[in-house]
Simulated scan of single mutants.
Amino acid sequence: MRKGSSEVAQPQGGRSSSSDVDAFLRKVAQAPGAATGGAKGRLIFAMDATASRQPSWDKACHIQGEMFRETSALGGLEIQLVFYRGFGECKASSWIANSNELLRRMTSVSCYAGHTQIGKVLKRAIDETRKKKVGALVFVGDAVEEDIDHLGHLAGELGVLGVPCFMFHEGFDPIAANAFQQIARLSGGAYCSFDASSAKQLRDLLAAVAVYAAGGRRALADYSRKAGGSVLQLTHQVK
């Protein structure tokens, strides 16, 4: 049964406005837990792989290389791919430091119908960071079919551990929006909605979070100046 279905304002025109993006990036800049000192950043990249997600999964396969490309000069990035689909299936890869290997793993995944399993994703992030520090969790999805109080508890644990959750919401389902916003808030992360036509925006935002995880706030400010567009305004906000 879905809980927490309070109404959430939807961006006009069916996509994120520039102010929504700016607010998201400002939250990224303020988040705790980024890697510093030349160590490889560690980022959990989690996606809903249920049936409705296939187009977005294919899109993410094409843009994931940007995360590695933008962090190579910062000491690099290790990513763990986590996805759920079908009847209770939730899988996690080993830690990957190579864009080609991540692409190989992602393109081998097919999306199957099933319920959301976000709680398992959050629990995975808790377990991983207790072994070795995780800089951030990125989640991309469009629905929530779980107890929001349980998800909030897990998000709060991640907040205590210093692992911010950056929740990318495709579409404008108000139940999912409310849940994703709660998870972001309780973990110290950020929420941003996007639509199926905003591939460049998603690419830039994913890269921004990866840069943050690998190099911290200063690296994120440098990236925002280079990226321009919706990311450029972050420079003054970080200052």
Rank of each mutant, 00 (worst) to 15 (best):
M1E: 14
M1W: 08
S5Q: 11
S5V: 13
S6A: 10
E7N: 01
A9K: 15
Q10T: 13
Q10D: 06
P11Y: 03
P11N: 06
R15A: 10
S16N: 05
S16F: 06
S19W: 04
D20T: 07
D20H: 12
V21C: 09
A23M: 12
F24V: 08
F24P: 09
K27M: 10
V28F: 02
Q30T: 08
T36N: 03
T36R: 10
T36D: 08
G38S: 11
K40L: 08
G41S: 04
R42V: 07
L43H: 02
I44L: 11
F45S: 06
M47H: 02
D48H: 03
R53Q: 14
P55I: 09
S56L: 15
K59T: 13
A60E: 14
C61M: 12
G65C: 10
E66I: 09
E70T: 09
G76Q: 06
L81R: 05
V82I: 12
R85N: 03
G86K: 03
C90G: 00
A92H: 01
W95I: 10
W95K: 08
I96Y: 02
I96E: 08
S99C: 08
N100G: 15
N100M: 15
E101R: 15
L103N: 11
R105K: 15
V109G: 03
S110N: 12
A113G: 15
T116N: 07
Q117M: 14
G119T: 11
K120G: 00
K120V: 05
K123W: 04
K123M: 10
A125W: 02
I126C: 05
R130K: 15
K131F: 01
K133P: 04
V134I: 10
V134M: 05
G135M: 05
A136K: 04
L137H: 03
V138F: 00
V140R: 00
V140M: 14
D142E: 11
E145W: 12
E146R: 04
D149T: 13
G152I: 10
G152D: 07
H153T: 15
L154K: 09
G156A: 09
G156Q: 11
E157M: 12
L158V: 06
V160H: 08
L161Q: 10
V163A: 05
P164Q: 08
M167V: 02
M167T: 04
F168R: 09
H169M: 08
G171I: 06
G171Q: 05
A179F: 01
F180W: 02
Q182H: 01
A184V: 07
Y191E: 07
Y191P: 11
C192T: 14
F194L: 13
S197D: 13
S198D: 14
R203T: 14
R203M: 14
L205K: 04
L205Q: 13
A210Y: 03
V211P: 01
Y212H: 12
A213D: 01
A214W: 01
R217H: 00
A219F: 03
L220G: 01
A221E: 15
D222H: 04
S224I: 07
K226I: 09
A227M: 10
G229Y: 06
G229L: 13
G229H: 10
L234H: 01
T235A: 15
Q237V: 13
K239W: 02
K239A: 10
